[in-house]
Design a protein around this nucleic acid. Structure first.
Lengths: 355, 355
DNA sequence: CTGAAAGCGCTTACAG
DNA sequence: CTGAAAGCGCTTACAG
């Protein structure tokens, strides 16, 4: 492997000049520039990242903005873990990393987070863009400041985000349709449980529902599928409304929860010892896992939230340090998690690499 | 963050001496040693991996030994990819990496591979230990030479391997039992398709079958489950034997293939346009994916073979460079792959990180 | 047992 | 526009 020194000798220039053309810094005559570029190409020169970051004591600042998790059992615990591990890996390259949290149900707390980001004035941002309008405006601000940003979990259209990492909502709903269809008899009724409070992630939830319904309409089965609405997905709400609905229509044998709150439904079903109803939901965070293990939640579709955090940071880092262009979009997986594989579905995320 | 120089100044010694105690090299008086150790602890000194590997032009040699893949569609294409990407990542730390292949059905070719390893005399080995006896003996040889080794995909008991990365066979078979039970009516018959040629991976296959059967015996359903044997899992064999068996017992509505050859069965079923038979197998390599997409293979349980290669190499690397002890065992996931999620099940493996 | 010095491959002022 | 030199934080012979 050739070094800068080798190239410099062969080109009969100093290493400084070679460095200049490698990084496209100004102040090199076209003649020497092309001469050096030829050699670089000829030897397929790759800069030594170690030496490079050691020498340039440059400090990059990256910030991640993600919702607060109340406990390790929450959905957002995993993306946070991914972010933190990625931060740890890139620290040795002189990256200063910050993680800012906000309350996903409180616009003001989100805005505060955005302000903090601007105050830090980082070189790059990873964020879950809640609150559509606010996030759109904020993206424009970043555009103006020439700060690259990566969306995770939630996608906004028509933005200049560097990349997006998340799940295809429609198709994940469609998959739920298939799994539900396997679980219940053809003549039974189904219900989709929706929270009125999920204003923001509305788009993803909506698409999941569409995908779910699409499965059955393609199958041409004349299923009765009702929608049941809750003020919010809290246990008392669920108990009250769902009890009523299940009594009204005792043909309902399958519940589809297009949010990550299936565990609330599980809690309710367990409390009244109802075992003949199938439950399919999203995301295998610990809250849901508890009910998956009991077989109360039959299937949860997971999207590997750890990777969303981890990959988001890594992409940004490589873009900043190496000018490596990421794909505009990375599809998160649609992992089917059930009682029999829940202990094995995501073990690799636990490994921490020093490098 | 303190540097070696800072410590040296405060201890009134040279940086060389500090280096000696950091790495426990001999030739330091107890007195200065303890003095320095105290400072190291006081400042929570962490050695700068970049500077360290840059300075010590030490070369580690790692070799991976895995079966040849005939095409990109084969199972072993993915572990190979994982190995290669890991190799690429660690190259900048001065690791010289070799990948050796063998024919998994030819003991001699395997032995040749082992000989090559010994000739290279590497600092560490990642391998899929086919051929039980030969691999056991070889492991002993590595033990004597003090060369650490990691098993992937296949585990051998009572060996001093640094770690193992692979799937829990029994439980993955059990999961197949559950999925099969969801797919077929209670009164139908099932068949397990076995190749007589799979002598070596015998253990894993056997355990998968045990797990599968265990599911039904726990369910207490009186299923008829037959075993059908083939000389080898080749299309002509399958056509001949399976046609006969399906005619003999036309109640067979589900086929369980405990190896990665479900696609051969898919090929057969497609050729005679048989759509009322459910098929469950293992591993979502491209050969199987083709039939998963057509809905002919209903479910395949994948074990993320990419990660087996990738993690195997990384673990070994970190053990060598950082003396970081890995877990003795990493369970591969049991990912349920089906028509509706096959496009999304493993996308993250495609990302190549430079770091 | 210990230190001084050179070097790993690159970057960065500085001088011309 | 270009080069010489110092330096990033370590490691490694070498000398004493």
């Amino acid at each position: 492997m050739k070094t800068i020194k080798d190239i410099a000798e062969e080109a009969k220039v100093s290493t400084g000049t070679v460095d200049r053309v490698i990084h496209n810094r100004p102040g090199v005559s076209l003649k020497t520039k092309t001469k050096i570029q030829k050699l670089l190409k000829k030897y397929n020169f790759e800069t030594n990242l170690l030496a490079s970051t050691l020498a340039s004591q440059k400090k990059y600042v990256i910030v991640a903005l993600i919702p607060l998790h109340k406990s390790k059992k929450d959905y957002w615990y995993e993306p946070k873990k991914g972010v933190k591990i990625a931060f740890k890996e890139i620290r040795k390259y002189g990256v200063e990393a910050h993680c800012i949290h906000f309350d996903q149900f409180d616009l003001n707390s989100y805005k505060k987070g955005l302000d903090q980001i601007l105050k830090i004035n980082p070189d790059g941002v990873v964020l879950a863009p809640f609150f559509y309008n606010t996030s759109s405006k904020f993206s424009k601000v970043l555009d103006e400041k020439n700060i690259p940003y990566v969306y995770i979990n939630i996608d906004l259209e028509e933005q200049k985000n560097l990349s997006f990492i998340g799940q295809d909502s429609f198709n994940s709903g469609y998959l739920c349709g298939k799994m539900m269809n396997l679980c219940v008899n053809e003549t039974t009724h189904l219900a989709i449980l929706l929270s009125k409070k999920n204003v923001d992630n509305h788009r993803a939830i909506e698409d999941r529902v569409k995908g779910f319904l699409n499965y059955f309409s393609q199958k041409n089965t004349n299923r009765v599928i009702k929608k049941i609405f809750f003020e919010s997905m809290e246990i008392e709400q669920v108990r009250k409304v769902l009890t009523k609905e299940l009594i009204k229509d005792n043909e309902i044998k399958g519940l589809f929860i297009p949010s990550s709150s299936a565990h609330i439904v599980g809690d309710f079903l367990e409390s009244i010892d109802l075992t003949h109803i199938r439950v399919i939901g999203f995301d295998a965070h610990q809250n849901n896992i508890d009910y998956i293990k009991k077989g109360i939640i039959d299937f949860a579709i997971d999207q590997n939230p750890f990777d969303q955090g981890y990959v988001g940071v890594k992409i940004l880092f490589e873009y900043l340090l190496l000018r490596k262009e990421p794909n505009p979009k990375y599809n998160s997986p649609m992992t089917i998690v059930t009682k029999e594989n829940v202990d094995y579905f995501n073990v690799m995320s636990l490994i921490e690499f020093a490098t």
